[in-house]
């Protein structure tokens, strides 16, 4: 059984920590096989799953929490949860990576809300979040896509949608807090976030 979870002899996949972007389904198959093995107690398979996904988990935690110590702790907690709940993943819920990063984001947001006081997360903090995300996140999205898709896609994600999405997703603000910060009605925030995600979905070519 040892060799099977690694999906064969493809050198591109053996020991690689990056998913082959041109074949996302194959990457997910491999992660799912590792997770299934981990669900039966296979610690080695779990270690490989960790190696393939920890950078993404940690990156999310770091972006939301900004503190390397908190980010490291949350990353640890997430993977212990992944181990404990490995049997509860099923393909109908989406990709393995989405399952794991969702858990990571949830934990990171819960922690940032509990450890950071309201005053510490004031207007300047929020604006900084948006600025930095613009430079370091959205620009990165641009670079990953070819020009044609970008032109098409980015039109579907306006700057105010990106702003609301950034505050909620990377800032960990509740929708009410986003509304308050932006000085717009709650309903407007809900729509911007939802439309922004629809746009993001198109930009990144995710099946709707």
């Amino acid at each position: 059984m040892d060799g099977a979870v690694h999906g064969g002899d493809d050198p591109a996949s053996a020991g690689s920590s990056e998913l082959p972007e041109d074949r996302p389904e194959r990457g997910n198959d491999q992660l799912a096989a590792l997770l299934a093995a981990a669900a039966e107690g296979d610690q080695q398979a779990f270690a490989e799953l960790y190696d393939r996904t920890s950078a993404r988990v940690h990156g999310v935690a770091l972006r939301v929490l900004r503190s390397p110590d908190h980010a490291a702790e949350v990353t640890q907690e997430v993977f212990v949860d992944v181990w404990r709940q490995a049997t509860r993943y099923s393909a109908g819920r989406g990709s393995v990576l989405a399952w794991i990063t969702t858990m990571a984001h949830r934990r990171a947001v819960d922690r940032v809300r509990s450890v950071t006081s309201e005053t510490a997360r004031d207007v300047k903090y929020a604006e900084h979040t948006v600025e930095v995300a613009h430079d370091e996140v959205w620009a990165g999205v641009d670079q990953r896509l070819d020009v044609e898709r970008v032109r098409e896609g980015m039109a579907q994600l306006t700057s105010i949608q990106r702003e609301a999405l950034t505050l909620a997703y990377f800032g960990g603000y509740s929708q009410s807090q986003v509304a308050e910060h932006l000085g717009v009605p709650l309903g407007t925030v809900k729509t911007r976030i939802r439309d922004g995600l629809s746009g993001l979905r198109s930009v990144l070519g995710v099946n709707a």
Binding site: Q43, F46, A47, Y50, D51, S54, A55, R56, V57, H58, G59, V60, L62, R63, P68, A71, A72, T75, Q76, F79, V80, R93, G94, S95, L97, A98, T101, T102, H105, E136, V137, G140, V141, R144, Y169, L197, L200, R201, L204, V206, N207, A208
Partner: peptide
Amino acid sequence: RSFREALTELDGVIEVAPPPAVRSNVL
């Protein structure tokens, strides 16, 4: 589900490997 897939893709842009201690602690 589709929103989460999109967000996961977005997260691909901000990957940062955790310190090695995290791996040993997890295992």
